[in-house]
């Protein structure tokens, strides 16, 4: 709670918190404060969806400006994912690409005055990491089957008595722990980086005019960090998919 309260006091005001301040004491204000991040998330969702809709309304072979931007984005993500996973990666491109653009927008919106990055909240990033976790496990089950999935978790090599019982059990535990830790590390990394950046902006803003150069510099840094963190999140997600899928491929090759 302590960190949360520090969090609240240090943050720059945003449009939702200002409205809540205006109608202080009402239940709506409390709701606004509680769902602050969600409101920004929904705004971003609406923005992205609207842009995508208007870009793809009349897709033509000779694209307009918005369409070519989206095409560049789509083919960029497609190259990125298929470059790592292989031709099978096409299936996961929409998931990873959506994650990327969503996280990027959430990160960047914090730089805009009177806006807030929903990704400064661990709940937001954990929700995304949980989606990744569930989808990766689902793909694992789907591609490997229950037996294959457990076999995958037991690890290699196996054969001699110690290798056939003891080490696989240890490997299984290790595997489960590493799988469970992934969403936590994934979400905390993203949340902490963006939160740190926003805090820095808030602190510099607190110094007033003399800190303006620092503020500008840090805003530029925040853009870079936003991009890098979105990339890292998606890169790791892609690697999780690759780990599940390559196992299946090597199994096929072994057979």
């Amino acid at each position: 709670m302590h960190e949360a309260s520090v969090n609240k006091t240090a943050e720059l005001p945003n449009i939702v918190s200002l409205i809540a301040e205006r109608i202080k004491g009402t239940s709506l204000a409390a709701h606004l404060i509680t769902w602050e991040n969600l409101i920004f998330s929904l705004a971003i969702v609406a923005l992205i969806a609207l842009l995508a809709r208007s870009a793809s309304r009349k897709p033509s072979l000779i694209p307009g400006r918005l369409q070519s931007f989206f095409e560049m984005f789509v083919s960029g993500i497609d190259d990125f994912v298929c470059g790592i996973i292989g031709p099978k990666g096409r299936e996961y491109v929409p998931f990873i690409g959506t994650l990327f653009i969503y996280i990027l927008c959430m990160n960047l919106i914090g730089i805009v005055p009177l806006m807030k990055s929903p990704s400064t909240s661990w709940s937001t990033t954990l929700a995304l990491a949980i989606c990744v976790f569930v989808y990766v496990q689902y793909v694992g089950f789907k591609e490997l089957g229950l037996r294959g999935y457990i076999d995958h978790a037991l690890g290699r090599p196996r054969g001699i008595i110690a290798f056939s019982v003891f080490i696989p059990i240890m490997m299984f535990i290790l595997h489960v722990v590493s799988e469970l830790v992934r969403p936590i590390s994934l979400s905390l990394r993203l949340r902490s980086n963006i939160w740190g950046d926003d805090m820095l902006l808030a602190v510099f803003a607190g110094y007033g005019l003399p800190a303006v150069p620092l503020l500008i510099f840090n805003s530029l840094m925040a853009i870079v960090v936003s991009l890098v963190q979105a990339l890292v999140f998606c890169l790791l997600t892609t690697i999780y998919f690759t780990l599940v899928l390559t196992h299946e491929e090597s199994e096929h090759n072994a057979r």
Binding site: W35, N37, L38, S41, L42, V45, I48, A49, A52, R53, A55, S56, F70, V74, V93, P94, F95, G97, T98, L99, I101, Y102, P118, S123, T124, A127, L128, I130, C131
Partner: peptide, 18 residues
Amino acid sequence: AQVITFLVLLFLMKRFAW
């Protein structure tokens, strides 16, 4: 709520973008 939001976005993006 955030999971649902993301899933909604995923659905919309699949339909309108991907």
